[in-house]
Design a binder for these strands. Structure first.
Length: 448
RNA sequence: GGAGAGUUGGCCGAGUGGUUGAAGGCGGCUGCCUGCUAAGCAGUUAUACGGUGAUAUAGCCGUAUCGAGGGUUCGAAUCCCUCACUCUCCGCCA
């Protein structure tokens, strides 16, 4: 959410900035400015009327005390007419305020000047680390490896829940757990993050704070608690969203709070499952583990001084990259163009890992600086000195990393000629029983 | 799930219709005094929005906020209704 005062004072800059994300946003700013003037005019009038009422009420109290009943009654009837006017104005003012709020919540963040302008496809590669692995024999893709080595069961997932909800099986499940451990350990022990264990369902105020609501409600799974769920007002009892990323609960950890002289940056790490509706995304990218309705992820969040946001983005991105380096995977970092960023982001780096079986780069992390746009929405503030004015910090988030696509890269990169997977050294201590993934032994549970 | 209690300013804690944004205490800040590892005295101490101002994150004025929303009233922290949350006991359970 943007600062109203800023929009008022620098409408041209705001308009131009948001136009790089879509023309409709520039128009919304115009509408905002229009409403804002009228809303303030009404508020001033309302304040005056209320002031009038307040002083009249005090007078009445005084008159009553002195026993001057007739005069008091006279004042009362006058105040009633003032009240009628207040009521009428309040209704108008309320509607304008609601519309203004709606517009503000519907405006994306300002893109950082350093990023490329344009739609999806205009991204720029920043760097490439490692050599995309090539094989002297036909490399298998992860689907085939999962099938042959009994690592993931897609049919069972469909049977249990539906497509996009695979079951990780045997060593596939263990490998995933090992990766979670590896990543968590590195972020907590080496990168200095504080680990949080957070709720996986959140009430609506939380995704409003991070920016998924109100615009992107249909991309989250919605959970209703009791039978009143279909009431027309939509307020029929508690309802929650399944988190699409741990960013939602972690960022909301400090919602509505004022941090007293925090030592920035604050760094949080949280592992969680994530649920995404991904409606209409059935296509070639939806095969196997590439795009799921439920997946797991280790998430990083940083809260920092507003002066420091861009530098923190470099650091948090490097923290995510470190995982890929430790695993010996080839990756590239790209900076997203204005038209392709998440709603709340000012600058986003995507990390793409090389998946040799598919001969493709797959996004395993997205690191974003949401500046004060997100802290404003979530109303997270801090004071840099005692008694100082509360300020909005900058917020950052990065996947560090997403499990399914990381699994794809690990399996495809470390496969050998006979179709086994020889896991890299760093994973050995997390799965000492199986440093080489091989086809199941006789007697293992069937994967059907 | 059942029964009960509660939700007031940074904290503790008064306050059942009228200058209560809110007593008192603690903590914080400022000044005075004292000269000693302290105490005393006085003052001050919320957030948001709007207006004014200068354009500065000063000052001044106003409005709103005593868990949230609605109602009664000229006027509500105080009365009524709905909801949320917290705590205690019981039940249930991983």
């Amino acid at each position: 959410m943007h600062d109203r005062k800023y929009l008022r004072e620098c409408p041209e800059i705001a308009r131009q900035s948001l136009a790089t994300r879509g023309e409709e946003f520039a128009r919304k700013i115009d509408r905002f400015l229009e409403i804002d003037v009228e809303r303030r005019r009404q508020q001033t009038e309302l304040d005056e009327l209320r002031s009038e009422r307040n002083s009249a009420s005090k007078e009445i109290g005084q008159l009553m005390k002195e026993g001057r009943k007739a005069e008091a009654e006279d004042r009362k009837s006058y105040t009633r007419t003032v009240n009628a006017r207040i009521e009428q104005l309040e209704a108008q003012h309320g509607m304008l305020a609601d519309e203004e709020e709606e517009i503000l919540l519907g405006l994306p963040n300002f893109p950082d000047p350093s990023i490329p302008v344009g739609p999806e496809g205009n991204q720029v590669e920043i760097k490439l680390v490692g050599e995309p692995k090539q094989f002297s024999y036909p490399a298998r893709d992860h689907m085939e490896l999962c099938q042959n080595l009994h690592l993931a069961n897609f049919e069972a997932g469909s049977r249990i829940t539906g497509s996009g909800f695979p079951v990780m099986h045997g060593n596939g499940a263990v490998l995933q757990r090992a990766l979670i451990m590896l990543m968590s350990d590195i972020h907590v022990l080496r990168h200095g993050y504080t680990e949080l264990r957070v709720p996986f369902m959140v009430h609506p105020r939380s995704p409003l704070g991070t920016g998924q609501l109100p615009k992107f409600g249909s991309e989250m799974y919605h959970v209703y608690v009791d039978k009143k769920l279909n009431e027309e007002d939509g307020e029929g009892g508690p309802h929650y969203y399944l988190i699409p990323t741990a960013e939602v609960p972690v960022v909301n950890y400090y919602r509505e709070q004022i941090l007293e002289q925090p030592s920035f940056p604050i760094k949080f790490m949280a592992y969680s499952p994530c649920w995404r509706v991904e409606a209409g995304s059935y296509g070639k990218d939806a095969k196997g583990l590439t795009r799921l309705h439920q997946f797991e992820k280790v998430e990083l969040v940083r809260i920092c001084d507003p002066e420091d946001g861009l530098k923190q983005l470099e650091e948090i991105t490097a923290d995510a990259e470190h995982i890929l380096e430790v695993l010996g995977l080839a990756y590239r970092r790209i900076v997203l163009p204005s038209g392709d960023m998440a709603f709340g982001s000012a600058k986003t780096y995507d990390l793409e890992v090389w998946c040799p079986g598919e001969q493709a780069w797959r996004e395993v992390s997205s690191a974003s600086l949401t500046t004060d746009w997100q802290s404003r929405r979530a109303n997270i503030r801090y004071r840099s000195e005692p008694g100082g004015k509360p300020l909005f910090p900058h917020m950052l988030n990065a996947s560090g990393l997403a499990l399914p696509r990381l699994m794809i890269a690990v399996l495809e990169t470390y496969q050998n000629e006979v179709g086994n997977v020889v896991l890299p050294e760093v994973l050995h201590k997390y799965m000492p029983h199986a440093s080489i993934l091989t086809p199941p032994e006789a007697g293992a549970p069937p994967m059907i």
